[in-house]
């Protein structure tokens, strides 16, 4: 910290802008209420008192995609719904993230073989950041997935050019 060392009062922190912006982003991920099927019930359970997703700053479930940062695709996606998911995802402002919750959203799950209308994974429609296994995943697993997403956000850089694109 060379230049700034021992220059300020006790309650002043120094950091870099990237870290600060990432910290802001990851501590207030607002998910969109997007319950599709059985997994949505576990998502509701995460939102409630026992598991309390609010501890991670992601408790403000928004009904409108325009106010949301994160799309938790909780459940089975079928062809009729796929186009709507695409549209909703496009409506979300950047930076936006998507979590595929459960076996169905990850890869068709139990409906892989005989489900003629089931999309075999939501990643065929929208890009996915974190996949969560389980049918349905336990609420703890969703929290784990959220923390993984936060790690991912923390590792990204907003101001600096990422090295690999130079």
């Amino acid at each position: 910290m060379g230049l700034f060392e021992k220059q300020f009062e006790d309650n002043v922190l120094t950091t870099n802008v990237d870290w600060l912006l990432n910290w802001c982003r990851l501590s207030s991920i607002w998910p969109m209420t997007f319950g599709l099927a059985c997994c949505a019930i576990e998502m509701m359970a995460v939102g409630c008192a026992h598991h309390d997703i609010d501890r991670f700053g992601a408790g403000a479930f928004r009904a409108s995609p325009r106010q949301a940062d994160l799309m938790i695709v909780a459940g089975t996606v079928n062809f009729k719904m796929a186009e709507r998911i695409k549209r909703l995802y496009d409506q979300m402002p950047s930076p936006k993230y998507a979590i595929a919750m459960g076996a169905c959203a990850t890869g068709g799950g139990p409906y892989y073989k005989y489900g003629y209308t089931v999309v075999k994974g939501v990643d065929r429609v929208v890009p996915v950041d974190v996949y969560i296994a389980g049918c349905p995943p336990r609420p703890e697993a969703l929290l784990e997935g959220l923390m993984k997403l936060q790690e991912k956000i923390q590792a990204s850089s907003v101001i600096r050019k990422p090295i690999h694109t130079v």
Partner: peptide, 22 residues
Amino acid sequence: GYLHRCAEKIGESVEWLQYLPY
């Protein structure tokens, strides 16, 4: 139909006991 998951077709395609989880 936004969540049609073909449960009845699966019932005709898997064994009796395998259908239980569906």
